[in-house]
Design a protein around this nucleic acid. Structure first.
Lengths: 240, 240
DNA sequence: TAGTGGTCTAGACCACATC
DNA sequence: ATGTGGTCTAGACCACTAT
């Protein structure tokens, strides 16, 4: 299966931004010119630029042109994007993350989970608690619930590596959308002591449901970190 | 200036979802049928559906159809969307929000602010601290910095109502994109006592830079709430 | 095989900003 | 007047899913 042309075009443009061919705050060549150069229609170029704009790489001004976005001055390398679908190992780098499985069981879902994961009470879920360290420093406690029917044959070994890899590359499932809630709370969960959090230390918690492309919910989870260990970020674009 | 057709089409479909014409988890009419019915081309329908999909109203499956999304079970009415551009008064309802101006001055920007707002050190900024209550209950302390050159003639009266309204409807400026960082912290700011936060109460803080459509940064701010008063949410769609 | 959404094209016209 | 991006069309072909 071949990649769509507009994705190829977006990659070319992204590279040119990265290597300085197109400079920050300067206009890119106009859409017609890019279309001719790359041998595609103008609409295909526009579609590529629309995507890059949604991701914050460029911004367009009708009547003026398309410009390379500036660096974001408050962006930090420790930020965790709250609007991406990469797993922790991929996000942070494979070898920087280690995982300890604190709990792994199969259960029937309670009423809350039945609602969250759109399950009948007879359809079992995995219940997983993982303690994850970033460069050997306590980083996050992840409480995860997934329907067994959607993720068959989950093993302890997979839990130590990447569940995301298993879901995507072995089961060939694709995440579609997610709803996430971020809040501050106290260290009051039974596993929080793993985070080296004192009794009065704030905790930052991200709770989420993830759905597949076909609309089925595949994961309910909440992830807790000590307040000074994690910052969630959102990039937002004011377009339809 | 007339509204684009694809926006009109999206509104029609959104209404039909809301009033039950199209039912949850059931397929909408196919794109060709909708196009004919509404007297537009198929691409225009697709563009409308793409937007609704990004906003989570529907999801599409190639080869199958377009389906109405389910209700999100963890969504709560107290959630604050972290990926919207509406001001607090509009988000929560005009009459539920009251504002007290704790500080209002004009200053030359320090180095940090010069970087955040892309300013020369001779270009002054407003420095505003507002205490905002939701139905007379302490809700958030907002620390806001804006370049004077972009927001001329800001008055105390505007601060008591909606700065967003002034920027959009009087100055006719449009927000383009924003980068937001959400973290948990302690009640250690000099204004935090307004939140009725005890010394050990966690605080949830949202820090952000907002840019206009033309790429100019117009606001740097950080907003602090007591941990149990605010939850930030993100909806994310795994598409280009 | 039939029906769905996804992509792509060429061409046209419009809205907007600048000169 | 010119050049930019935004919208819209009709038509074509492809990829995917179900039967």
């Amino acid at each position: 299966m071949k990649k769509a042309k507009y994705l190829e075009v977006a990659e070319v443009i992204r590279k040119r931004i990265k290597d300085g061919t197109y400079q920050v705050k300067k206009p890119l060549p106009d859409q017609q010119t890019l279309a001719k150069e790359l041998g595609v229609s103008r609409l295909t170029v526009k579609k590529a630029l629309d995507g890059l704009e949604r991701q914050g790489e460029v911004y367009k001004q009708s009547g003026l042109g398309t410009f390379v976005s500036e660096e974001i001055p408050i962006k930090s390398s420790i930020d965790s994007p709250a609007n991406e679908f990469t797993g922790l190992r991929k996000e942070m780098g494979k070898n920087r993350v280690t995982s300890k499985v604190l709990h792994f069981s199969v259960e029937f879902p309670d009423e809350k989970l039945q609602k969250y994961l759109d399950l009948h009470k007879t359809e079992p879920v995995y219940h997983i608690v993982r303690f994850r360290l970033l460069e050997n420093k306590p980083y996050v406690i992840e409480h995860t619930f997934m329907p067994v029917k959607l993720v068959p044959d989950l093993t302890d070994e997979i839990l130590h590596k990447s569940v995301y890899d298993y879901i995507h590359h072995v089961l060939h499932l694709k995440f579609g959308h997610a709803y996430r809630r971020i809040r501050a709370t106290r260290a009051d969960d039974k596993y929080d002591h793993y985070l080296n959090a004192g009794e009065n230390d704030p905790i930052i918690e991200l709770q989420q449901i993830i759905w597949l492309m076909n609309g089925q919910p595949i994961e309910y989870s909440f992830n807790r970190s000590r307040f000074d260990q994690r910052v969630y970020t959102v990039f937002e674009n004011n377009r339809f």
